[in-house]
């Protein structure tokens, strides 16, 4: 299963990078979003998925059995990463809107020219 998920992530990365390399700024954002999802999956996978019980301490016992539960640390990391992804997405969208409004183009190569002083 790891094999399949790894290939899936690889494909996501390929798509994300391809979109990043496009000149259209809309596609760039799509690429960033795909990459952030794929990276979350990498973290998830690195925690290991053989043990896939829900990571709670069951009622009545004091400790969880680390042999069974899914690794909780990557989950905590991904949880915040997802929400931050939302913030970033909103920010890029606002940036893109402003950029388009100011320059009237969505071609990134134009950006490098306006960037010079």
């Amino acid at each position: 299963m790891e094999f399949i998920i790894a290939i899936f992530i690889g494909l996501l990365y390929a798509c994300g990078v391809y979109l990043l390399l496009r000149r259209s700024i809309v596609k760039l954002i799509l690429g960033v979003l795909i990459l952030s999802n794929a990276t979350n999956l990498i973290i998830f996978l690195s925690g290991g998925i053989q043990r896939n019980e829900i990571s709670f301490i069951p009622e009545g016992s004091e400790v969880a059995n680390p042999e069974v539960i899914l690794d909780p640390l990557p989950q905590a990391l991904i949880l915040t990463a997802i929400v931050i992804g939302l913030g970033i997405a909103a920010y890029i969208l606002a940036l893109k809107y402003k950029y388009f409004e100011k320059t009237g183009t969505h071609d990134l190569d134009q950006l490098s020219k306006t960037d010079q002083k």
Binding site: V83, L86, G87, A90, L93, A94, Y97
Partner: peptide, 17 residues
């Protein structure tokens, strides 16, 4: 904070756009 953040973003975008 998360509630406020999303509300802020949404209302701003809706307002300006």
């Amino acid at each position: 904070l998360v509630t406020g953040m999303i509300i802020s973003i949404i209302t701003n975008i809706m307002d300006v756009l």
